[in-house]
C-alpha cells in the first residue's frame, strides 16, 4: 500500500501541473505568433522580438530593473542573513518578539499597504522618489524572504562543527567565515536569487516608491497591458521567463552537486 501511487494521485498531479503551466506555455507560444491578434494563430514569426529590441522605452525599463535587482538583492542578502543569524542564534535579547514580527510580517503584508507606507516615509523625510527610493523599498521587502530561506538552513545546521572550531581556538568571527558561511552558502545563494526575482517582478511597491526616470519593466508592462494586449508584451514576458527558468535550473543543478559534495565531505569527516 505504501508504495502504491494511486491513479487518483497521478491524475491530480498531472491536472495540477497542467493548470500551473498551461497559461505560461500558451503565453510563450503566442509570442511567436505572426498575427497581431494575441489569441489567433497566424503562423510562426519572431518579428515581435525584433520590434521589442527596437522599443527604447522597454529597453530602458529593463536596464533600470536589472540594476535595481542586482543592488537590492545583494544588500538584502547581507541584511537578511544577519536577520536570520539573529533569529536563530540570539534567542534572548530585548525586543526579540518585535524583531521576529518585523521579519515575518512583510512576507504576507498586502503590497498596497507596504508600498503606501514606504512612499509616505520617503515624503516625510523629503527624499526625492526615484532609483534610490526604489532600491531601498526593494531591499526592505526582499530581505525578509532571504532571512526565512537562510534561517531554515541555519536551523538544521550542526552546531558541533562550530563548537569544535572554537574549542580548537578559532575566534567566533573566523569560525563564522571558515565554517558557518561555507555550509549555509547554498541557502544564501538561493536567498539572493529569490530576492533578485522578487525585485525584478515587483509592480505595486515599485509604482508607489518610484519616481520619474526610474520606470521598471513590470511598471512598463503594466501600463501597456492596460492599453491592450500585444504580442510584443508576450515576447518580453517570454524572455523574462526564459532568463528566470535558466537561472533556476542552473542553481538547482549547482545546489544538488554541492549537496552531494557536502554529504560526501561529512561522511569522510565522520569516518576520519
Amino acid at each position: 500500500m505504501n508504495t502504491v501511487w494511486s491513479r487518483f494521485n497521478i491524475a491530480s498531479i498531472v491536472l495540477g501541473f497542467a493548470f500551473l503551466y498551461l497559461p505560461i506555455v500558451l503565453l510563450v507560444v503566442f509570442s511567436f505568433n505572426e498575427s497581431k491578434l494575441v489569441t489567433v494563430w497566424g503562423g510562426f514569426s519572431t518579428k515581435w522580438y525584433v520590434s521589442l529590441f527596437h522599443n527604447q522605452g522597454l529597453m530602458d525599463a529593463a536596464w533600470v530593473t536589472i540594476r535595481v535587482g542586482l543592488i537590492s538583492a545583494t544588500v538584502a542578502t547581507v541584511l537578511g542573513t544577519l536577520a536570520a543569524l539573529t533569529l536563530t542564534r540570539y534567542t534572548r535579547f530585548k525586543g526579540r518578539l518585535l524583531f521576529s514580527g518585523m521579519v515575518f510580517a512583510p512576507l504576507v503584508m498586502p503590497e498596497v499597504i507596504t508600498g503606501l507606507s514606504l512612499l509616505l516615509l520617503f515624503v516625510a523625510v523629503n527624499l526625492d522618489r526615484g532609483f534610490f527610493t526604489l532600491t531601498l523599498a526593494h531591499i526592505t521587502f526582499s530581505m525578509c524572504f532571504v532571512a526565512v530561506v537562510v534561517q531554515s538552513r541555519l536551523l538544521t545546521f550542526d552546531r558541533s562543527l562550530e563548537e569544535a572550531a572554537m574549542d580548537l581556538g578559532a575566534p567566533p568571527v573566523k569560525t563564522f567565515f571558515q565554517i558557518t558561511l561555507p555550509v549555509i552558502l547554498p541557502a544564501i545563494v538561493s536567498g539572493w536569487m529569490l530576492a533578485f526575482t522578487l525585485s525584478i517582478d515587483d509592480l505595486v511597491i515599485s509604482s508607489f516608491t518610484s519616481g520619474p526616470g526610474a520606470t521598471t519593466l513590470p511598471m512598463k508592462i503594466y501600463s501597456q497591458v492596460r492599453l491592450g494586449v500585444t504580442p510584443e508584451i508576450n515576447a518580453a514576458c517570454t524572455i523574462l521567463i526564459g532568463l528566470v527558468a535558466t537561472g533556476v535550473v542552473i542553481a538547482s543543478v549547482v545546489n544538488k552537486q554541492r549537496e552531494v559534495q557536502r554529504l560526501r565531505d561529512e561522511q569522510i569527516a565522520l569516518r576520519g
Partner: peptide
C-alpha cells in the same frame, strides 16, 4: 521544484497570461 518554478516567473506575467 516544478511547484516552486512558476513562483519564480513574474506574477504580473502569469496574471496577464489569463487575459488571453
Amino acid at each position: 521544484m516544478l511547484v516552486i518554478l512558476p513562483f519564480w516567473t513574474s506574477f504580473l506575467i502569469r496574471v496577464y497570461a489569463w487575459i488571453g
